[in-house]
Computed example of a mutant assay.
Amino acid sequence: MPKDAHSKTAVLYRMVMPEHTCPYGLKSKDLLEREGFEVEDHHLKTRAETDAFMSEQGVKTTPQTFIDGERVGGFDDLEVHFGKKDADPDETSYTPIIALFSVAALLAIAFARVALPSILAWQTLGWFVSISMVLLGLQKLKDIESFSTMFLNYDLLGKRWIRYAYAYPFIETGAGLLMTAMVWNWLSIPSALFIGAVGAISVFKAVYVDKRELKCACVGGDSTVPLGFVSLTENLMMVGMALVMGAVALG
C-alpha cells in the first residue's frame, strides 16, 4: 500500500541492545507516533555502534530525532519542539502541588467513606489537612539537603538555628501522622501550631513585606512553585488544624 504523500516522517536513532533498551528512545518513538509521524526507527545495537553515531553527529546522548532533515535532539528536546514542555527547566509549575492536594483530598474521602456516616463531615476536612501535611513532609524528606537550602532563603527561625531546617520535615510529617490517627494531641497540636505560625510569618515577610521572588520549599528542594500563596496556605492550614483540634480537646 503506497504511503500517503502528505504523511509526516521522522528519523529516530535509539539504543536497542540485548541487555538495554533506552527508555527515552521508547518515549521518543511513542511521542512522535502520537503526533502523527511515521517513524524510521534505527536501532543502535552495540556500544561501538552507539559511540560511532554520537561521534558522527557531534552529540553526547541518544536517542536523537531528525525531522525534515534537521536534528531536533533527545526526548526533552522533542517535548519542547511539540510544546509539551517549556524550554526553561525552572519555569513555574503548579503540577506537583495540584497532584499532592488532589491525592490528599481523595485519601481523606476514602477514609471518611470507611469510618464516617457521611463524607460531608468536618473530620473529612481534618483528614485532608493532616494527610496533606504527611505528603508535603514526605516531599521534603526525599532530599533534606536540597530542602534545607531552599528553606533557609526565607524561614526566620531557620536562619537563626540551622538545625531547625533539618528538623522541620520530621516535625511536619510526624504531626500529620498523629493528627490523622487522632492520637497524642498533646504533641501534634503544639508542633503543628508552632511550625505553621513560624512558617506563615516567614513567608508573609519574605513575599509581602520584603517583596522577594523565591521558590517555595513546600514540595521539596527541587520545587519550581513560587513562594507565596501556596506556602502561606500550607502554614495556615496547619495553624487552623491545630487550633480546631485544641479547641475540641479543651471542650
Score class of each variant (00 low, 15 high):
211 K>T: 08
88 D>A: 09
225 V>I: 15
57 Q>C: 11
148 S>C: 10
89 P>D: 07
35 E>K: 13
168 Y>N: 04
198 V>D: 14
33 E>F: 03
203 V>P: 09
236 L>Y: 05
82 F>D: 14
222 D>V: 06
68 D>G: 05
192 A>I: 03
1 M>W: 13
225 V>N: 11
79 E>W: 01
48 A>C: 05
73 G>N: 03
182 M>A: 14
135 L>M: 09
21 T>S: 08
97 I>K: 04
42 H>V: 06
67 I>W: 11
150 M>L: 13
39 V>I: 01
51 D>V: 03
30 D>L: 09
171 I>G: 09
176 G>V: 00
121 A>F: 10
24 Y>E: 15
173 T>S: 12
158 G>M: 05
127 W>T: 07
7 S>P: 04
134 V>M: 08
72 V>E: 07
208 Y>N: 04
105 A>R: 05
126 G>I: 02
39 V>Y: 05
63 P>S: 02
166 Y>W: 07
235 N>T: 00
52 A>R: 07
41 D>T: 01
63 P>W: 03
48 A>M: 03
140 K>I: 04
202 S>F: 06
112 A>D: 14
91 E>M: 11
128 F>M: 15
12 L>N: 09
217 A>W: 02
223 S>L: 00
18 P>N: 01
153 N>F: 04
92 T>N: 08
213 E>F: 14
85 K>C: 06
201 I>Y: 07
220 G>E: 04
177 L>F: 04
138 L>E: 15
25 G>M: 07
206 A>V: 00
247 A>T: 06
19 E>C: 04
23 P>C: 00
97 I>L: 11
109 I>M: 15
186 W>I: 10
157 L>R: 02
132 S>K: 03
155 D>M: 00
118 S>Y: 05
141 L>F: 06
206 A>G: 02
53 F>A: 06
150 M>R: 05
139 Q>G: 13
8 K>E: 14
53 F>I: 03
8 K>A: 08
134 V>F: 00
87 A>E: 15
72 V>Q: 01
100 L>T: 02
101 F>C: 15
155 D>C: 02
67 I>V: 12
21 T>F: 01
164 Y>K: 01
108 A>H: 01
160 R>Q: 13
89 P>N: 08
71 R>Q: 09
149 T>F: 13
36 G>N: 00
229 F>C: 11
146 S>C: 04
248 V>W: 09
225 V>S: 11
118 S>G: 06
81 H>Y: 13
90 D>A: 11
94 Y>C: 10
148 S>I: 01
195 I>K: 01
140 K>P: 09
9 T>Y: 10
55 S>A: 14
48 A>L: 11
196 G>H: 01
62 T>C: 11
234 E>V: 10
236 L>V: 08
138 L>Q: 12
79 E>T: 03
6 H>V: 13
214 L>N: 04
229 F>P: 12
191 S>T: 03
107 L>H: 08
92 T>V: 08
117 P>R: 01
67 I>G: 11
242 A>H: 05
90 D>C: 02
130 S>F: 09
200 A>F: 14
101 F>S: 12
197 A>I: 08
248 V>E: 14
18 P>R: 00
123 Q>M: 13
115 A>G: 03
178 L>V: 02
77 D>A: 09
187 L>R: 00
163 R>A: 15
181 A>K: 12
142 K>D: 15
247 A>Y: 12
60 K>H: 14
203 V>H: 08
236 L>N: 08
151 F>C: 05
207 V>W: 02
153 N>P: 03
70 E>M: 12
